[in-house]
Design a protein around this nucleic acid. Sequence first.
DNA 1: TTGAAAATATGATGATCATCATATAAATGA
DNA 2: TCATTTATATGATGATCATCATATTTTCAA
Lengths: 204, 204
Amino acid sequence: MSKMSPDKAPIHKATTHKERTHARILDEAAAAMRLDGPDGISVAALMKRAGLTHGGFYAHFPSRDALVTEAIDRMFQDSRRILDDRLTQREAADGVVGLIDWYLSEAIRSAPDQGCPLPSLSGGAARMPEAARGRFNQGVAYFQRALATAFDALGLPEPETTARSVLAELVGAMALARAASDEAAGNEILRSSRQLLKTRLGLA
Amino acid sequence: MSKMSPDKAPIHKATTHKERTHARILDEAAAAMRLDGPDGISVAALMKRAGLTHGGFYAHFPSRDALVTEAIDRMFQDSRRILDDRLTQREAADGVVGLIDWYLSEAIRSAPDQGCPLPSLSGGAARMPEAARGRFNQGVAYFQRALATAFDALGLPEPETTARSVLAELVGAMALARAASDEAAGNEILRSSRQLLKTRLGLA
DNA sequence: TTGAAAATATGATGATCATCATATAAATGA
DNA sequence: TCATTTATATGATGATCATCATATTTTCAA
């Protein structure tokens, strides 16, 4: 990019001012879109949240659709780190139990801007711009593989099939729990799935 | 409403022209919103689909939010009929198996305007106008009770807890299957949940 | 310190939207 | 048939939106 250092790849991750600003816009976008969906924030409102004005947006992203795509990616990067921490840095059974309890916790229920983006975004993924939908499905696939690996370590039969089924229940339970107007009803949904997921994985 | 017949409730369901038009708008709205979400169709586009022009809308609904609320209701009425047919008009085990196979069928996957509205709408329910969110949760509660009744008839322990868990998996699996860009991957999700739901309910 | 380049701000454009005021057309009771 | 109500259409209003053109500020090397 710079004329002065044409071939010099940034070895020490030289984050320029622009890169930092780009990342800040993206963080705000990811947070906002977890709460209000991909169409939930306007370019102007987003830039204001990032401490900027609307005009500069197109110096950072070629279009709003491109922002959505990058923001989806960003969300899954965060989730992936949590997922890896839970599933790899422990004994398999503890990791899976911890993941279930974290994923379906009341804290995450009340904080859609943390936790996994799948429950809020799955229902609308088919309406996303195609590139964003692709990133979304990469995130789903990663989650699925990570679960399957853990289930394989647990000696469960058909780990891939089980992983798909378990992921579906995790996503559906949190989506329904967040939809509930009555907090107690939502918590019952979470409790039920926490309990029965562990039961059927032989972890209860 | 009418000055001429003040106390006469319409015993023979005398559907006036206006009532029929109202119902037509609502049907179009429900179909459109299943495909594209509650914000997916404009008032003008909706009225055109119903064969009318945009101006007449406010003779039928006080606001767009009111339309969304009624449309949510309409969707669940349709689903409820299917649900009741499946779960009550058969032997319990057959009914549950049939419901699972229907709910998670590839046909329904490809036709979001049929089938249950929960997979498409759950993720965004928290962002709905409050009245619509209430109707949505009534629909969820009805579904849950119907499943619990069937599970009780099957002699399963904790039918309420199981109903919540099963509903979560049904909703999550269809949401993820519809999100998939790759049709084969989506079908694998459906197959996995069909199989494991029956297994864990002792119906395999 | 200065001047070019990069980053951000200001302001405008055309599109879409929900909503409403008012005009026309259709239905209905006399 | 006529008059009145009811239903629908036309057209406008103000708001919001993505996007772009251009101006201003900031950064940083010389």
